[in-house]
């Protein structure tokens, strides 16, 4: 049952009919932080009963965004730091915001062209760099900002639509 206090946190454009209350999960960066954060998020998303296709889209986008934080925001030797994932369920999907206190993301880290491996020799096939491409391909309204020493990445995943 959804309590009244849960509903009071929702933004005005969200009705209580069939919507998940907004929630946030927090992890400390580390080798298994991404898996732990995903477990916690999907635990909270259970009431949405996402199908396999939707779940794999959400999991991939979140995993890539979290991997980027682990890899680029908290590189060695400062590999620990907080990561917050906030999710708001709206009519047009899941609005996700990721925040961390690590290093700012350089612009060139967010560049991604469409992969075209057919044109490349086997020996030159890329073994990485697909993360941003997948995030941008599978989500909408992707925005990055550096605010008060924090990285803010917001995006929308178009699943679990409601009337």
């Amino acid at each position: 049952m959804r309590s009244v206090s849960d509903a009071s946190h929702m933004s005005p454009d969200v009705t209580t009919a069939g919507f998940l209350p907004p929630f946030e999960v927090r992890v400390i960066c580390g080798p298994l932080a991404v898996r732990r954060a995903l477990d916690m998020v999907f635990d909270r998303l259970t009431p949405l009963a996402l199908d396999v296709e939707e779940k794999s889209t959400v999991e991939l986008v979140l995993a890539e965004a979290l991997n980027n934080i682990v890899e680029h925001a908290y590189p060695p030797p400062d590999t620990t730091g907080p990561i917050q994932v906030s999710i708001r369920h709206c009519k047009d999907g899941l609005h996700v915001r990721l925040r961390d206190r690590g290093r700012a993301m350089p612009d060139d880290k967010r560049q991604s062209g469409k992969p075209d491996p057919c044109e490349i020799d086997l020996a030159d096939l890329p073994e990485g760099g697909f993360g941003w491409f997948l995030i941008q391909d599978l989500s909408r309204d992707v925005e990055y900002a550096r605010i008060d020493g924090q990285n803010h990445l917001s995006l929308r995943i178009a699943v679990a639509f409601r009337q």
Binding site: L122, A123, E127
Partner: peptide
């Protein structure tokens, strides 16, 4: 049931390692 871009990269690296 799940791979991310790092997992994909590892499979690509494996293919390159096994070749030619």
């Amino acid at each position: 049931s799940f791979i991310d871009s790092s997992g994909l990269g590892a499979i690509v690296a494996t293919m390159k390692h096994l070749a030619p």
